[in-house]
Amino acid sequence: MKIKPTLLALLMGLGIINGIKGQDWPNISQFQEDNAKLAKPTANENRVVFMGNSITIGWINSRPEFFVDKPYVNRGISGQTTPQMLVRFRPDVINLEPKVVVLLAGTNDIAGNTGPSTLEMIIDNIKSMADLATANGIKVILSSTLPAYKYPWKPEMQPAQKIVDLNKMIKAYAEEKGHIYLDYFSAMADERNGLPKKICQ
């Protein structure tokens, strides 16, 4: 059977074909050893898993004191999109048996890191992760997507308004389901709906 070029590109993007790297498209192996070493939470442990992208994992480097001697587990992977997070949500969140998950996602989808995504696709993936958490007795905190006027790695993109619109969808869903909405955006956005220069430096 001859595969059309567009289908071939899709299959390669999903990691169905094209080598070892493509086989772990969601990067499940990133925390595989750490997850195996992590003991089950004790009866009184208020374990929190932070699921996200570079912004989440960046806290380990910029504010390591947030995680020292606390039952906080960081499962951020730089550059990740919501479909990748959804695939690894069970091993990196549910199987760790936290009481709370803090989800910060969406900006890399808008940037097109794993291909084009509509806002509806992004919010559907966020809803799916929240639904999985709720079904497993995990409280959900949905973070707003942080403001961005431009992406350095995708300067042709114009993400600002898309992020505003996505955050409206996240907030509405959080209110509908009784999840906590963590609004970073309002505290950080400048007049362009981007990050102020003092934060970017």
Score class of each variant (00 low, 15 high):
63 R>Q: 15
123 I>R: 01
147 P>V: 09
50 F>D: 02
173 Y>F: 11
99 K>S: 12
34 D>I: 00
163 I>Y: 03
201 Q>V: 01
142 L>Q: 13
62 S>W: 05
146 L>T: 12
170 I>F: 03
114 T>V: 07
13 G>C: 06
73 V>Y: 02
110 I>W: 03
183 D>G: 10
144 S>M: 12
13 G>T: 05
123 I>Q: 03
28 I>R: 10
108 N>D: 14
59 W>Y: 08
20 I>S: 10
170 I>V: 14
10 L>I: 04
30 Q>M: 07
156 E>I: 03
26 P>A: 04
177 K>E: 10
119 L>E: 13
36 A>N: 14
171 K>H: 09
52 G>D: 08
103 L>W: 01
116 P>A: 15
163 I>S: 06
2 K>T: 08
123 I>T: 09
177 K>Y: 07
117 S>I: 00
144 S>P: 11
77 I>R: 00
186 S>W: 05
139 K>A: 14
179 H>T: 01
177 K>D: 11
111 A>M: 09
72 Y>P: 11
146 L>S: 07
199 I>N: 00
100 V>T: 15
116 P>F: 15
160 A>S: 15
53 N>W: 10
191 E>F: 12
42 T>Y: 02
103 L>E: 00
191 E>P: 05
180 I>Q: 11
26 P>S: 04
181 Y>E: 02
188 M>C: 01
109 D>I: 11
140 V>L: 06
2 K>Q: 12
167 N>L: 09
21 K>C: 05
179 H>E: 00
171 K>L: 05
21 K>H: 02
109 D>L: 13
54 S>F: 13
51 M>E: 01
168 K>H: 03
28 I>Q: 06
32 Q>K: 09
109 D>Q: 11
70 K>L: 05
49 V>Q: 07
25 W>I: 13
54 S>I: 09
38 L>E: 04
164 V>I: 15
43 A>C: 04
109 D>M: 13
158 Q>S: 14
151 Y>I: 06
7 L>F: 00
112 G>A: 09
53 N>K: 09
131 D>W: 00
11 L>F: 14
98 P>C: 10
1 M>R: 06
183 D>Q: 08
182 L>G: 05
138 I>W: 04
94 I>K: 08
48 V>D: 04
197 K>W: 10
105 A>L: 08
127 K>M: 08
16 I>Y: 15
144 S>L: 09
41 P>I: 07
35 N>T: 07
71 P>M: 05
151 Y>C: 06
101 V>M: 04
59 W>A: 11
173 Y>Q: 06
167 N>W: 08
23 Q>F: 09
98 P>M: 09
